[in-house]
Structure formats: structure tokens, C-alpha cells
Design a protein around this nucleic acid. Sequence first.
DNA 1: TTGTATGCGTTATCAC
DNA 2: GTGATAACGCATACAA
Lengths: 338, 338
Amino acid sequence: MPTLSDIADDVGVSTMTVSRALADKPGVASDTRHRVLESAKRLGYTVNLEGRAPVKEQTQKIGVLVNNVGSEYSGEIIDGISNILDVANYDIVIFNPFKMRRSPNEYVVEVCQYAIDGLLIAAANRLQPQSVEYLEQAIRQHFPVVFIDQRVAGSTVPYVTAQNRQGAYDATRYLIQLGHRRIGFILGPHTESPSGERLDGYRDALAQNGIAQDDQLVKNGDFTRQGGYAAALLLLSMDEPPTAIFASNDPMAFGVYKAVQQSGKRIPEDISVIGFDDIALSADIHPPLTTVRQPLREMGRVGAQMLLDMLRARDEPPVAVMELRTSLILRDSCAPLR
Amino acid sequence: MPTLSDIADDVGVSTMTVSRALADKPGVASDTRHRVLESAKRLGYTVNLEGRAPVKEQTQKIGVLVNNVGSEYSGEIIDGISNILDVANYDIVIFNPFKMRRSPNEYVVEVCQYAIDGLLIAAANRLQPQSVEYLEQAIRQHFPVVFIDQRVAGSTVPYVTAQNRQGAYDATRYLIQLGHRRIGFILGPHTESPSGERLDGYRDALAQNGIAQDDQLVKNGDFTRQGGYAAALLLLSMDEPPTAIFASNDPMAFGVYKAVQQSGKRIPEDISVIGFDDIALSADIHPPLTTVRQPLREMGRVGAQMLLDMLRARDEPPVAVMELRTSLILRDSCAPLR
DNA sequence: TTGTATGCGTTATCAC
DNA sequence: GTGATAACGCATACAA
């Protein structure tokens, strides 16, 4: 690709004059400027940002690490991030490490080396201590990092998350109020912090209402439809199956829908289903899903704003934690126990 | 962030020795190497890729431009791209321009300036002629670009796409074979090339079976659930509503489901629905969606492979066009006309 | 208005 | 085994 000096040679001026002309800076004769622009167009010149970055020491780009770009979950978070960063004149570069060759841990380091001014890490499952340590060091060196929807115990990396425990408590209590006593629970992966928090909320509600814990009713899942489907099959085939199922995220609830519908039962008449997320699809499927809304867009926005604050006030200690409220969205997938 | 010379000062050697030691290259005393590595670790050093890129002139990164990171459609294409690029030792950087501040056209130029060795453009709707022209120039300057699922008339940019017309023809003929005569069609955005091709296939099938075109039955859509829902409401409220609806992608078919279910009608007993894509969700919703499968992962793989070929054989003319076959996936959303 | 010198962080080359 | 020098593409500071 052509460079500044190619144009300089072409026009017969110095690279500096070319640089000024292209950057639309004052101090270039309008005749010279025209000749430069014409030459640049003819040669097909575009800046090489790699050359500019080391000089300017900022790229106006923020990296975003997600683990599944094809999910509405990620899409909504990224949307929220865009909202804020657009206004602040930052671009977004998305890295999708968890489907990639490298281990997530190496990848975190690599991403930080990239031409970005800061990093947002969404749903950073499987992050090992050494990676977290590396991130903390990066922050000390004024490279801002923020976790979104991920709490890392004992770490100083700032994060924004939802009130998972409270949300799960609310959902479970709602089912109990409808008369349900045998409530199945489908876990998320144990590597993600919200999973355990939601389980805690579920248990809180059972305990507070004098319902004995039955570990048979808690099945492993992985936050995917397939995982929810598999777990639901297990629950439905129990000797004494649950009358309600709490899937700890919405995609797993869709998997539950599939299993229930295949079994010939109806939602909510025969079995109540409740989810967690409130992604857009949840309102559109049939029957519309009752779920715990966590403000994914808002989490993206808040995370981005925290990052910008760290970027602007380099020496002040960053806001460490933001917990956003959840709310129970009542739709048509739950009914009183018959 | 610390640099090579910080370590050099710390250890008391030259930057060159540090560079060699960190790159694991021969010609460094093992004692020196150890001291360098120790210092690097202590200081929290990581390479600055922006400094390396201008020297090496390649970054082992490929850019991917998509317009909706939250869709299964994009997710599956990106997945296919990963499959190929992982093996070839390239990383993927995803740009999500169409939700961003800049116009897509400026953005295309900007992305090319970024630290990437090539660019895959998926579903590049709204690309104006000047952008396409820019991309063609970039290709001439050995910066490889490939379109995925996008055909640009009169352009020399290589692309991979599906046989949209044939696929839509097959779907429509299937409905006709089931006895349907009034078949609604929901368009994609006119800015995307597959939209028109699918409409053509639909019309081909009607014409070949002696069914008169009724433009009332063709409604605008935008490849989103909401768009499909709105279009379906229009179709269902017609004086003589269609007995089958062909949504030209799967998300719009889900929108049709919602409208039909709200109207109290049943799929497929009262109305048949057929989609186009075969994203994973289509098999999981109720009833499972009959749809035209286009191999999205395969399109990602093929596009990535075309890019690698261009990268490797810089002077040979690239493969211009790849068209992948579609296939009709029969599930439970279509039934014979009663 | 234009050009020169210098530097960013890294690596290749060629000395020693 | 190690280091000085130059180079990548660009921009800042200063000189002409």
C-alpha cells in the first residue's frame, strides 16, 4: 500500500507537507493541498494506523472480549457499549477468543497488546488467576479494563454486574406464591460467577418458605438451548417431576420449552417455566416467557462509562463495582399449580 | 506500559538482546535470557504490536465486518471463518459498523487501514459504489477482500454466496405441491442482494406452475423478527389471506409464528410457514421450522479460504465466485392445504 | 508555506 | 553472544 513518502515523491514535496495536507491542518498552500489530495486519491493512499498509533499513543479504539458473538446476550451488551462509545468517539473492536485456537488466558494478554486504548471483558468465563493478575497489572499501568457481568473474587478489576441472587430469589418466590413446591433449577456453567449467585437466590427462597432442598431438582446446564433441553429431559423423566422449572438463563428456558413440548405437555397449564435475562426473543416466542430481566444494554453502557472514566481520570481510583437491579417480567409461561 | 528499553536499562543490556531473548531466538546466553525474562515479568512487559507491525508488515489478523453481532446468522458465519483461520494461525477481529456512528462507507475505508492483513465483509448491505471501488483498489494493492453472502453487480471483488434463487424456488414449489395457491412472501431489505434473488425464485415457481402473481401477497421485511411480525400482520388481515407464508429468512419466520399464534391460528394446521437460513434455533422452536438451509458455516469457511489463497498467491488472479448449494429442510411447519 | 530533525517501539542486518 | 545502526510509517517541534 502506498505511503506518505510515495505521495511526497509523486507531488514533489516533503512527507510533512503531505501529512499536513491530508490531516486538513493549516499551513499548506491550497494549490499544494489540492495536488496532494489528487495524488493520494490516484495512488489509493490511506493512512496506516499502525504508523500513527505509536506517535499519538492512542487509537480511539476499545476492545471487547466476548465468548459468543452469535448470542442475543452478547449482542445486547455490545449494543449498550456502542451507545456510549459512539458518543465519545471511540470505535469498537470485538474479539471472540473462546472459539479460538488459543487459550482464553493467553488471549487476554494478546488482546491487551493490540492497538486499543482499553478493554471490556464480557462473560469472561474460564479466566485463570494468572490472567486476572495480568489485568490488574495492566490497570496499574493505566490500561483500563472492566469486567461486564463477571465478578472475580478477590480481584481489584472493576466490574458491573446484575443482582443475580436477588433476581433468582424473586423468580423462585413467585413460583412458590403460585403454589409450586417442586421447582426444578437448571444451573449455568460453574465457571461463570452469575451461575452460583442465581443458585443461591433459588435456595434462599426455598429456605425462607420452609421448602426442603432436593438436590435431585438441580441439574447442570451451560447457558445454551441444548443444555437446557438436556437438563429438562432429566427433570421431566423423574419419578416425581417438578411442576415448575427455573432455567437460569433464557436460552436454556427455550431448551426447556422444546423438551416440554416434545413430551406433549403444555406450558403453563402442565408445567411453569421461568427464565433469566429477558433477551428480545423471550417476548416473541410462544408462550411469551416469564423471566428475570437483567439490563444487558445498561450493563454494556455502564461498563463502557466506567472505562471512559478510567481513561479520563487516569490517576483517580476507579469505581470498583456497579450492581444493577433486576426485575421480574411477568408473561405467560407460569400458572398457579393445579 | 514498559517497553523494550525499560527492560534493557533494568538488566543492563541492549534492546536488541532483550528483543531476541523475548522472541526465544538463538544467540542469547541462557543467563542473560533468564535475567531478561525475569525483568520482563517483574515490570509487566508485553510486546507493543503497533511497534512490531510496521517492521514485520503483517499482523496475522483478519478483519471481519458484520452488521449484527447479536444474530445467529452472523455467529454461524463467524464460526466458519474461525475454523479456517485458526488452523492458518490468524486471529479474527470483528467490526460491527452498522450500529456505529460512522457511515458504513467511511467505515469500510477505516477498517482497511487497521492492523489487519485482509478483510471479510459479511452481509455488507448499504455499500455504496465508492466503497466498492475503494475495495477493488485495495485488492489491486494486494490487500485481500472477500464478500460473504453478498453479490455486488459489476464488481470484481470475489464473493461467496448461496444459491438463493434456486433455494427460494424449491421452497415455493414445495408449498405449491402441498396444494397452496395463495402464498405470501416476506422480502428482505432491498439493499441486500439475496433479497431480490429469493423473490425471483419465488416468482419463478409461481410462474412455472401457472399461478398468477399477486403483488398484494409480497410484503416488505427487513430480515428481523419484528419485520416478519409486522409483515405477517398485514398478510393475515387481508380479505383473502394466504394459506402459506414464505419468510425469506428464519428470524422473520419467527415473527410470523408470533403473529399467527396471537391470531389464534395454528401452524401448520391453519397456515403453513417456511423460512430461509436454517439457523440452529429453527429446529428448536415449536413447531420446528421447515426452511431452506443455506450453509452459513460453510460460507464462512469458503470465504476465509478464498482470502487465504489471495494472501498466499498475491499475483495470481483470485477465484471470483463461489456459489454454495441450498437444501430444503422438511420439518413440521408446513402441511397440505385443507 | 515548507522542510529538517527527531522520536514512537520494534526488528533485521551486520558488525564486533 | 552482543550491540550499534537503520528502518517501518507517521507526527511533533522547530527551523528556514
